Simulated scan of single mutants.
Amino acid sequence: MEWSTPTQQGEIPSPRAGHAGVTVGENWFITGGGNNKSGVSETVVLNMSTLGWSTVTIVQGRVPLASEGLSLVLCSYNGEDILVSFGGYNGRYSNEVNVLKPSHRSTLQSMETPVPDSVSAMQNATNATRDLESDVATVQEGKIREIVVDNIESEPMVNKVEETSERLLAALKAEKEDLESSLSKEKLQTLQLKQDLTDAETRNTDLYKELQSVRGQLASEQSRCFKLEVDVAELRQKLQTLESLKKELELLQRQKAASEQALNERRRQSSGGVWGWIAGTPPNQQDDA
Rank of each mutant, 00 (worst) to 15 (best):
Q195D: 06
Q217W: 10
S184T: 01
L193F: 13
D206C: 05
S220M: 14
L191W: 13
R215V: 04
Q195I: 02
L218E: 00
G216S: 14
V214S: 04
E201H: 04
K209I: 13
S182L: 13
Y208A: 15
T198E: 12
L218Y: 01
S223D: 06
D199M: 03
E201F: 02
V214T: 00
S182I: 15
E201W: 03
Q217I: 13
K194S: 06
E186G: 00
N204S: 14
E210L: 04
E221M: 12
Q192P: 02
K185G: 03
L211C: 02
Q189H: 06
L188R: 06
S223G: 05
S220Q: 15
Q195N: 07
A219V: 08
K194L: 05
S184E: 10
L207S: 05
G216Q: 12
L218P: 08
L197K: 10
S182P: 02
D199N: 01
V214N: 08
S184A: 12
L207K: 00
K209G: 12
N204F: 15
E221H: 14
D199E: 05
L183P: 03
L218F: 06
S182Q: 12
V214P: 01
G216L: 09
N204I: 02
Q192S: 02
D199T: 11
K185A: 01
T202P: 00
L218N: 03
K185L: 03
L197C: 09
Q192N: 04
K209T: 15
L218H: 05
E210Y: 02
S223R: 05
K187E: 11
Q192T: 02
T198Q: 12
G216V: 03
E221F: 15
V214A: 09
Q212K: 08
L207T: 04
E210F: 09
Q212W: 04
D206G: 00
R215N: 08
A219R: 00
A219L: 08
V214F: 14
Y208D: 15
L211T: 14
R215I: 00
L218C: 01
Q212A: 07
L183Y: 12
T202E: 10
L188T: 04
S184G: 04
E201N: 11
T198Y: 11
E221Y: 15
T205S: 15
G216R: 05
Q217R: 10
T202D: 12
T205N: 11
R203Y: 07
E210C: 00
R215H: 04
D196C: 03
A200E: 04
L188M: 10
L211R: 00
E186W: 02
E221A: 13
K209H: 14
S220G: 06
L218M: 01
Q217V: 13
Q217P: 00
L183I: 02
G216W: 03
V214I: 10
D199H: 02
Y208H: 14
A200G: 00
K209Y: 13
A200V: 07
E210I: 07
R215E: 12
Q195W: 01
D196M: 09
Q192F: 02
E221P: 03
D196W: 06
K194H: 07
Q192G: 03
V214C: 04
L211K: 02
K209S: 15
L193I: 14
T190R: 01
R203A: 15
